[in-house]
Design a protein around this nucleic acid. Structure first.
Length: 688
RNA sequence: GCCGACGUAGCUCAACUGGCAGAGCACUCGCCUUGUAAGCGAGUGGUUAGGGGUUCGAGUCCCCUCGUCGGCUCCA
């Protein structure tokens, strides 16, 4: 499965719209398509604003036609589909009040206030009604409302729209789809024959010319959402859908969703016997089975090796600590809600229930850094020791809200590959730069190679520390990010309370992005822990601290890799690397010999000696995604050879045992990330 | 935390309006001895997530708890 490729549109020639005529007629006269996947649905004016085809400028104007199969074109189709959905809802549920209905990535939604939440049956009925509306070829007609008062009057029965109008009259914001652009507009849906207004909605547009220009859509799910995203506001019912320029494009999208479902790590975790979430343990607390354990151990071992080579020192810290430590670090002040509640221990009371001895609050640790700081300050430090890099596979526990726990990617107990680097302010720049290189190289070794960076800066409502410190830290990160040459996206206000961060976002095999590594410069904790080192001149200086997790958490990284590879792990990570499959029981002996040799080379190999037929064994181990199936029948036994079958069904027959063993060990040793095939797997003899 | 849907064998799913809990796969035991994705037969397996209620009778209806899923909010 390759990444979804947006069709590359031909560079669109500009079209001149004559004064007083519509953009649509200019587009038609230019001979541009009016239907089909590349139909022009809107135009872009000189200021970059999208305009309806019915737009008629007062002067001759050059515009760029926007086709349905572009991202902008799809957004317009989706926005129009949202309107059709809203019309359908109000026809079937006249009491429904409208929220907002914007296009979003890959689709659209519309929020409604209804007495009774929508059911799946409602969705089917709504789809049906939407199809009727689309067939009816209603015209989207733009109308400017003269004044806020006029708008209020018109929208009297739509309380949420009224709120938007009032919002608009206070601050002109283009954030909200419904309003913006300097004036209040309504889009009316007109009957094509009579011209009667069938329905209308406060909206800044633009829209496709008629409902017929929504070639393919489907409603996907229904969910609740807070009005204007605030949990203090009432909850509305949100209907999600997707719409595309053609049925083919819609089908491709649905196929991608189906593929994502097949690759879902929660499903693969059960199918491949990797891990599970026993109810008895608790929500968000996974256990790893032997096969998942093997993959995880390989992940960790390789990381450990690379960290050793990279100058990291390994430390260990307990899972639980007295509360004072997190008072010092500030976590109890800022993030108590995200922590498991305290265990109150060691309190003693006398027979009257009066406290005789004060107890202590112990907490499960949500982060490792305070412990590493204690290690740092366990003795005096010299500038000669810096940068000091402390690394730990540290298990942390966070009390995630019940609604966010999700497979391995959002858990309550996880192991971070956590490192804290202590350096002098002078070293910071170089350290971050080399750290970023280290992180990206390592991610590439695991098969992720499509990245962009995100720089999260201070949240003005939630931070500690001085402006200068924040600026210095942010600059250091920005410089390193820019030096990497990767795409850099800004995330204003996204930082943790104590430090700005760079996060590495990786795109997987399906083109989805995942936040992986984070690098944070911290100028707060060294203060709070009073960390020092002795400088060359004998003075005591404060080190700068860098937090970084590479996998984020092992669990999450495991989940991402599982989905990236669809369970077909690279041979070096695969829990079972080779399965020997005898054609008949007579050939078991031969394969046991081969297996013994492989095992002596460190290969994880099994021989399937069950009563199943050979074909069945191939099926079983194919579904288990074993990279190498090594078959042997009478011919192979006679020739001292084996025959390969690969995941993709390809085969390579009569390979001498010694050659086969060496080639397998070599493939694994190289940490080749692709699946071996008859073409890519060349036993030494063939490769010369 | 909020809204909604869901929870039947290890897995995937049946069981019409309340009326004897079933199938395929997996697993166990036989037979079969096989050349690149399911050989044949038999058997084991369930307090229908847990608890309470309505009813002559509850997998099915009602209430509570736990969990899962989809969103919202949150995410050190």
């Amino acid at each position: 499965m390759s990444r979804p490729q947006a069709p590359v549109p031909e560079p669109t020639p500009l079209v001149v719209v004559a004064a007083g005529t519509t953009a649509g007629s200019a587009v038609r006269e230019a001979g541009l398509p009016g239907k089909g996947p590349d139909a022009v649905v809107v135009v872009r004016d000189a200021e970059g604003r999208l305009r309806d085809l019915s737009w008629a400028p007062a002067e001759d104007t050059e515009v760029e036609p926007v086709a349905a199969d572009t991202e902008d074109g799809r957004s317009v189709i989706r926005h129009s589909a949202a309107h059709v959905l809203a019309q359908a809802v109000q026809q079937l549920f006249p009491e429904a009040k409208l929220g907002i209905g914007p296009p979003v990535k890959d689709g659209f939604y519309y929020d409604f206030d209804v007495e009774r939440p929508f059911t799946p049956e409602d969705l089917r009925a709504l789809e049906k009604r939407m199809k009727q509306i689309i067939k009816g070829s209603q015209r989207f007609s733009r109308r400017v409302v003269d004044s806020v008062e006029a708008a209020r009057e018109e929208l009297a029965s739509e309380p949420y729209k009224l709120e938007l109008v009032d919002l608009k009259s206070e601050v002109d914001t283009s954030e909200v789809m419904e309003v913006g652009g300097g004036e209040l507009t309504v889009y009316d849906n007109l009957d094509p024959r009579t011209g009667d207004r069938v329905w209308g909605d406060l909206c800044r547009g633009p829209h496709v010319p008629t409902t017929r220009h929504i070639p393919a859509f489907t409603l996907t799910r229904v969910a609740a959402a807070y009005w204007r995203g605030n949990e203090r506001n009432p909850q509305l019912q949100r209907i999600y859908g997707t719409a595309w320029e053609s049925t083919e494009a819609l089908d491709r999208h649905l196929e991608l969703l189906a593929e994502a479902e097949r690759r879902d790590h929660r499903r693969l975790g059960a199918e491949l016997d990797l891990f599970s979430f026993p109810d008895e343990v608790g929500s968000g607390l996974p256990v790893f089975h032997p096969k998942g354990g093997l993959v995880r151990r390989e992940l960790e071992d390789y990381s450990r090796r690379r960290h050793e080579e990279g100058g990291y020192e390994f430390v260990y810290s307990p899972h639980i600590t007295k509360g004072a430590l997190f008072e010092t670090s500030g976590h109890l002040g800022w993030y108590r809600d995200g922590m498991f509640p305290a265990m109150h221990l060691d309190e003693e009371r006398d027979e009257n229930g009066v406290v005789r001895r004060q107890g202590q609050d112990y907490y499960l640790k949500p982060m490792n850094c305070p412990f590493h700081n204690l290690i740092y300050r366990s003795r005096g430090r010299s500038y000669r020791e810096l940068p000091l890099r402390l690394f730990e596979f540290g298990s942390v526990y966070r009390y995630e809200k019940s609604g966010v726990v999700h497979g391995l990617t959002r858990v309550r107990g996880m192991t971070q590959d956590d490192a804290h680097i202590y350096c002098t302010p002078d070293q910071l720049q170089d350290e971050i730069r080399s750290l970023l290189t280290f992180v990206l190289d390592l991610l590439r070794d695991y098969g992720l190679d499509d990245f962009y960076l995100e720089l999260s800066t201070r949240n003005e409502e939630k931070y500690v520390g001085s402006d200068e410190d924040w600026e210095r830290a942010t600059d250091a990160l920005r410089a390193a990010a820019e030096a990497s040459g990767l795409e850099l996206v800004l995330d204003p206000g996204g930082a943790a309370f104590y430090a700005p961060k760079i996060s590495v976002q990786a795109r997987d095999a399906l083109g989805r992005t995942w936040q992986m590594s984070t690098i944070q410069v911290d100028m707060q904790l060294p203060d709070r822990f009073d960390l020092e080192y002795t400088a060359p001149d004998g003075s005591r200086q404060r080190p700068v601290m860098v937090h970084r997790a590479l996998f984020g958490s092992i669990e999450r990284f495991f989940g991402v890799l599982t989905e990236h590879y669809g369970g077909a792990f690279p041979a070096w990570l695969a829990p079972v690397q080779v399965v020997g499959i005898p054609i008949a029981s007579d050939h078991v002996e031969h394969l046991l010999g081969v297996a013994k040799e492989l095992r002596s080379r460190g290969v994880r190999v099994e021989v399937d000696t069950s009563d199943d037929r050979m074909q069945k064994k191939i099926r079983n181990h194919t579904t288990q995604k074993v990279p190498f199936m090594v078959l042997a029948g009478a011919n192979d036994v006679e020739n001292g050879a084996v025959s390969f079958r690969f995941r993709d069904g390809g085969q390579l027959n009569g390979v001498p045992v010694a050659t086969a063993v060496a080639a397998i060990a070599d493939w694994i040793g190289r940490r080749e990330n692709s699946s071996p095939t008859a073409e890519t797997f060349e036993p030494a003899g063939a490769a010369g």
